[in-house]
Design a protein around this nucleic acid. Structure first.
Lengths: 121, 121
DNA sequence: ACATATTACTTTGTCTGTCAATGTAATTTA
DNA sequence: TAAATTACATTGACAGACAAAGTAATATGT
């Protein structure tokens, strides 16, 4: 893990990242933790404490829902599922990110940029 | 000012943005404030309080230096100049941003991205 | 068999950057 | 001459990220 990435550069994207993972199927905390590391190509680790904080936040806001897995041995894995409003939220966040990315390019690079502006979505 | 951009999406880029402005010539607080709004195409306003906080931070760390303009009427404009380490810092920050941007794309968009990976500089 | 590592979830407290609110004072415009 | 703009500054609050520490189960190594 090179981890060049300062926490402030990711700040604000945590929720979007989690929602993206959950959009591809239900998952539980530790697995999501591993998935994010893998997705980043081992470049970024979203810390566990941050993750679990985000789960609370997202659930409270109704973007995800949780249920315990039926592991039959102890109260093991807590699974998360993305809700409909969660999917909407993800789409919105993704748009915002594309928008912000373009503005940031303008602000960080010197003058006027060519145009690498295709929100895709 | 549509200001779609949440503060958390910019967080961590403030210093880089300021250094970028100062790289194109000395300037003073209020002008930098206006320049950033213009540079963003009126899409983003870096708040004054944030700016002045950043000036302190950057000066303390030796990335910028300040001097009073010779307005001869009152202690008017405080100009800022980017230092050599400031220029280096800017370059580093820009690289970090390109790197983080690519990782973020991976984390926010679903699967594996094509490749829009040319750090430029 | 026993220690260690890994899986899995949780809480508490701290730090940092951003910004609202507020203030001062000079200059410019209506 | 009142109001707006320019220009700089401080204070206090808030939110997100995370280090640290902990609990408890299962798996692995020796």
């Amino acid at each position: 893990m090179a981890s060049n990435i300062s926490t402030d550069l990711i700040r604000g994207h945590t929720d979007t990242i989690i929602l993206n993972v959950l959009q591809q199927g239900d998952s539980y905390g530790y697995q999501i933790y591993k998935t994010i590391i893998a997705l980043s190509g081992n470049q970024y680790e979203l810390k566990e404490a941050t993750l679990y904080t985000a789960f609370r936040r997202l659930e409270k806001e109704g973007y995800i829902a949780s249920y315990w897995g039926d592991e039959t041995q102890g109260g093991r894995r807590k699974y998360y599922r993305i809700t409909e409003t969660g999917v909407e939220r993800y789409r919105k966040n993704k748009q915002d990110w594309h928008f912000a990315k373009n503005v940031l390019n303008q602000l960080i690079e010197g003058g006027i940029q060519n145009e690498e502006n295709k929100p895709g979505s």
